[in-house]
Design a protein around this nucleic acid. Structure first.
Lengths: 247, 247
DNA sequence: CGTTCCGTTTGCGCCGGCGCAAAGAGACGC
DNA sequence: GCGTCTCTTTGCGCCGGCGCAAACGGAACG
């Protein structure tokens, strides 16, 4: 852990602090702690007292929840500009999951007490936090519905599209997820096994929809993935000689 | 919709307003609208602009999310003293689900603008809301993990235990869920079909663990349900062929 | 008191996807 | 360059639970 002096400009990008004036931002910057986080580092662990509110300046953090029997669920990936661990500070005070750096990161944090005071003084921060947590709640509820009602293939498609939206980087032949992502990770995001994910990706690769690598996925035909996610009949199949109107 | 003058005492019970002084509560009461809600009423619908923050004084409200293909998910049941629809007001402004009264209810509500002002003036309200939404987020994440990793029977056990905790009423022979709850509802809470739920409950009824009725469930042996939910090896079944009621 | 309606129960057959297992393929260290 | 380690791919068999469908039973209504 290497304390640094935080850069005001980087904090300005955080949604948590949007709409605040320069004075408030200055105070926020003053009270923040910045540090570099090496790939693989566990930033906090499930069950720990939630003593710090975190935000990411750069990198990618994986939030993982572990069940009593060791079963794991990838709750979400945090990207630059997003906060994490903050909801726990103000609801129960126990982190409900592990946070671990999937790549080298730069993070900032505030103590629970400091953030509490900031929120009391600048209610806008609390409202921003409410906004953010509310959106995550909606997203998780949507995932819950997907998991309840959709088949594995559609869920994987949804998960990939979600990743593209928040971590997609345009490359020559499509869009790639810009951090290490194993089949196991995808399985833990979609409630299946790495075997099934591997089979599905292999199938898609055969159709030219995606391109896989070691801890790496590139989407070549996002529209085809959308078609699968939305369960559209059949986007395009050159050989429509047999057009039965069904599957 | 019958406007009434809200009772300050009933609002004091809301977690959303805990920790506020009398003056603040008085203002909150002044700005609230109370109404009776008949069983079966849709309070708001998925996709509507989120113009009102709601709270329940009495009764039970079901929050249901519907997917593109009509598939439904019971997100949660709201009981007396709980707020609902509030997160949507401050995150996106669109209700992500339907809210419908499963019994006759009494509710209060504030306009989005009013609640926003209240939160600005009394940051404590925003912090309380953050607390509540954060807890719901944690709960939904836990359900997500259960849905990902557990078999149907355990999920149903978890769902029933959760309901007992928030809507259980002690009766002579156990604990009953104090509002109309169909097999279909349980299925939509656990990501399965009413057929499977029916089979499972029938099985449990045969073991004397629960007692079912029309839109009605009574838990006779909560500990046995816990054992199933936690996947304990086998609570005790020394004489499963002769006398199942011996506890 | 009979009819209708809705929620529930139960049998049967099928299949998506998991469990197991083993082999393949990059990445990394020495 | 070589061995090792981790991640990935793929075949095979099995089964939990869904889909379908019919029957049942209690409540509400006229």
């Amino acid at each position: 852990m290497t304390p640094l002096s935080p850069d005001p400009a980087s904090l300005r990008g955080l949604r948590l602090f949007s709409g605040l004036d320069a004075a408030a931002l200055a105070e926020i910057v003053r009270s923040a702690q910045t540090r570099r986080i090496e790939k693989g580092t566990t930033i906090f662990s499930q069950g720990d007292r939630a003593a710090l509110c975190h935000a990411l300046i750069d990198g990618r953090v994986k939030i993982v929840q572990t069940g009593a029997d060791g079963q794991q669920l990838v709750v979400r990936y945090i990207g630059a500009g997003e906060m994490f661990g903050t909801a726990a500070v103000f609801s129960g005070g126990i982190y409900p999951a592990d946070a671990l750096a999937t790549v080298d990161c730069v993070g900032v944090h505030w103590t629970a007490a400091t953030m509490g005071e900031l929120m009391e003084r600048y209610p806008r921060i609390a409202l921003n936090a409410l906004d953010i947590v509310g959106r995550r709640l909606q997203e998780v509820q949507t995932r819950l519905r997907e998991l309840s009602t959709e088949r594995v293939e559609r869920r994987v498609a949804h998960a990939l599209l979600r990743l593209v939206r928040q971590a997609g980087r345009r490359v020559g032949n499509g869009v790639e997820i810009d951090f290490p992502l194993s089949r196991q990770d995808i399985a833990e995001m979609t409630g299946t096994t790495l075997h099934t994910v591997s089979r599905i990706l292999s199938g898609w690769e055969g159709q030219g929809i995606v391109e896989g690598g070691r801890q790496q996925v590139t989407i070549r035909q996002p529209h085809a993935l959308v078609a699968i996610a939305e369960d559209l009949p059949k986007p395009e199949k050159p050989d429509d000689a047999s057009k039965p109107g069904g599957k």
